[in-house]
């Protein structure tokens, strides 16, 4: 039986009827068309499906949509502002931190959450914050550099 849930996604309130076995990831991608959140491993290892829920990064493939009832969700679509790309996005572009791009939304959301909590992280802190996001192009070095660059520009 479907459940009616209310959640805020990128500042906009949604009321949707969802079956209990629907993940937040599938709700975002297939019901709401927010395909910026990627579906990789679907078991919580790769971090491609990372979204920010109530201020904290989570794997949306491991959250049931019914568990997201009443929560505030930020996806990659909500990161850009009216002035253009977010400074973290801009840093990823400038530092060549985007290769195939599949891990990028998750990387940017994990980085955003880190920089909000810790505006001047060390390299080790950056690597720890991104440890749940896998890049199979193996471009980690440039991703770390981009986060460092963004932290300097933001603070």
């Amino acid at each position: 039986m479907k459940r009616l849930i209310t959640l805020t996604i990128n500042g906009k309130e949604y009321e949707v009827a969802v079956p209990p076995n629907l993940t937040l990831l599938d709700l975002l991608r297939y019901e709401l068309g927010l395909t910026g959140t990627k579906k990789g491993c679907d078991v919580g290892d790769c971090g491609a499906c990372t979204v920010i829920m109530d201020g904290k990064p989570v794997n949306s493939c491991l959250v049931l949509a019914v568990q997201a009832d009443g929560r505030d969700i930020l996806t990659i679509e909500g990161v850009e502002t009216e002035e253009g790309l977010h400074p973290i996005q801009q840093a990823f572009v400038e530092k060549g931190a985007v290769q195939c791009g599949f891990c990028t939304p998750g990387m940017i959301l994990s980085a955003k959450s880190l920089l909000e909590r810790n505006p001047r992280p060390t390299e080790e802190e950056i690597r720890t914050a991104l440890s749940g996001n896998l890049c199979r192009c193996t471009g980690y070095q440039k991703i770390v550099e981009a986060v460092k660059d963004a932290s300097e520009k933001l603070s």
Binding site: G44, G47, T50, M53, K56, P57, V58, N59, L62, V63, S110, T128, A129, S131, G132, N133
Partner: peptide, 8 residues
Amino acid sequence: ANPQVRNV
């Protein structure tokens, strides 16, 4: 695990 898992 990883930060995303530890948050949940």
